[in-house]
Structures are given as C-alpha cells and as structure tokens.
C-alpha cells in the first residue's frame, strides 16, 4: 500500500466526514466543511481530541494543519512559519507519521498555472518543515491547483482560505 492508501486509512480512522473523496485528503480540519463542528463522536474513539497533544485532531485543529498565501505568491508569511514550526515540533515527537503537503490555489488563475503554483506552495512548506528537522523522506507533496477549494464563494474572503498548503498525516514514516 502506498502513502496515499495509508493516508486514506488514517483519515478514515479518524472519521473526517468531508474526506470521503479519495482525491481530497486535506479538506477536513479547522475551517473546512466537516471541521470541528462536524467531528462529533470522534473523541469517543479514544484516540484523542483537540486537547490531547498526541492526537491527530490536536495537530489539525490546535496547531493548525494549514498555512495561507498571498495572491499568486508562495512565500511563507511569519504566521505560516509559526504554524509550520509548531507542526515540525509535533512531527519530531510523533515520528510514526509521514506527511503529504497539499498545495492549493484559488480559482483566479488558469488550470495549469494553478497546478504549478500549488506545487510551489507545497514545496515552500515542505522545505520549511525539512529545515526544522523533519527527515526529507517523511514529506511528500502534491498539488491540487484550483481543483479542491474548501470555500466556494467567489470573493477574497474565500479565496484567501483556498490559497493554502495543508499538511496531511499518513501512517508509516519513511516507508
């Protein structure tokens, strides 16, 4: 089973309601449909909620699994670096996980360009995580371009949340 299959299993195990599409690993979590409000019952699994520092929910919601970008940019803001530093610390103490960083763009761009832009964003986040001590073989990237927005309105309020890189946990570090 490849990384993605494992990622899907992890996602499925934590019951993220919005993640039933295999093309869409990082849609859940804070801010997205199926975010905190849509995760009822998860805590009862005994795997830990957002207050349990070892839990996936903590990673996704408390630390934040995503960082945001300016229009047509892939430079990490100070806020993004802060979020990624937190992710890196967590990953350094929860070494059982590998990660896939998804890069996304808003809809204001052509399809091919946005695929390449999403790759730039994912790569920027990946490089920062590696600089914080994450082994390169734990991190892969994928770009969804403008194919998987989490917000559906056509205003800057939505666009700003769609221009993102999402760190998705998967089982099997370094495999």
């Amino acid at each position: 089973m490849g990384h993605l299959g494992k990622a899907l299993l992890v996602v499925a195990a934590f019951g993220l309601a919005a993640c039933n599409n295999p093309d869409r690993f990082g849609a859940g979590g804070a801010g997205g449909p199926g975010g905190p409000g849509g995760m009822g019952g998860i805590d009862s699994s005994g795997l830990g909620g957002p207050n349990d520092p070892q839990s996936v929910a903590y990673f996704q919601q408390t630390l934040g699994d995503r960082v945001f970008f300016a229009v047509d940019q892939s430079t990490l803001s100070d806020a993004a670096r802060g979020t990624l530093s937190g992710q890196a610390q967590w990953l350094n103490s929860n070494t059982q996980y590998a990660i896939i960083v998804e890069g996304h763009a808003d809809e204001q761009g052509t399809r091919e360009y946005n695929l390449a832009l999403g790759a730039r964003r994912a790569s920027a986040a990946q490089n920062f995580l590696i600089s914080q001590g994450i082994a390169p073989n734990r991190v892969r990237t994928v770009s969804y371009g403008k194919e998987r927005p989490v917000e559906v309105c056509s205003t800057e309020e939505c666009y700003s949340r769609n221009r993102r890189a999402v760190t998705v946990l998967s089982a099997g570090a370094g495999s």
Binding site: S74, E112, L115, A116, A119, R120, A122, S123, A124, Q126, N127, R140, T141, V142, S143
Partner: peptide
C-alpha cells in the same frame, strides 16, 4: 516524486510536450 501535466502532441503524433514539476519548480 514529480508531477506531470499539460501534455500536448506534436504534429507528428510521436513527440509529446508537457510540464514536469520537481521540488516546486515546473
């Protein structure tokens, strides 16, 4: 470890041009 996209055939039907992304660069 790469992403490939935006393919097109050449007029001979043999050559294909496309984009390849590696390490964030396309």
């Amino acid at each position: 470890g790469t992403m490939t996209f935006a393919p097109r055939f050449g007029p001979d039907g043999r050559m294909v041009v496309f984009s390849l992304e590696q390490g964030g660069n396309t």
